[in-house]
């Protein structure tokens, strides 16, 4: 099963303060351990929200709001995707994170293929969606 470990933003991460070289080295060791154990799938740190934007649809119109955003505790500063045998194992990896002062993470389970095998998606719906996708022109960079 797969989990996302979400690293919460804090004042430092939002201010764009880079972690100390010691902190980066400690994190490197931790990542190495997860790679050696075959559990790490992906992971990245994120720039502050001042370099991002929020996009939503209002009355059918797309509205873009540029960052920064004030509610720091609700923002994220990075993530890991890991694959473990159990929730307990994912929790155990979280406990081994070399936490910096003020650092907080959130552990969330990702949906698996089996979670979607339900009657909510009908064959007809799938066929239609496929037809729609196949009708699209290839996206080309050139």
């Amino acid at each position: 099963m797969r989990f996302m470990i979400i690293v919460k933003a804090n004042a430092d991460s939002e201010a764009g303060v880079m972690p100390s070289s010691e902190a980066i080295a400690r994190m490197g060791v931790f990542n190495e351990k997860m790679i050696e154990a075959g559990v790490m799938l992906a992971g990245d740190g994120l720039h502050p929200s001042s370099r991002g934007a929020r996009i939503k649809s209002e009355n059918g119109k797309v509205v873009v709001t540029d960052g920064p955003f004030s509610e720091t505790k609700e923002l994220i500063a990075g993530f890991w995707m890991i694959q473990t045998k159990s929730y307990e194992e994912a929790l155990e990896w979280c406990k081994r994170i070399p936490f910096d002062a003020g650092m907080e993470v959130e552990l969330r389970k990702a949906f698996e293929a089996s979670d979607f095998v339900s009657d909510s998606i009908t064959e007809e719906h799938l066929a239609k969606e496929q037809e729609f996708r196949d009708a699209q022109k290839p996206i080309s960079n050139g």
Partner: peptide, 13 residues
């Protein structure tokens, strides 16, 4: 299906 995950994990190790 867990076998697939396990095989991939051991492969990565």
């Amino acid at each position: 299906p867990q076998l697939c995950e396990e095989a991939m994990r051991m492969g990565r190790i």
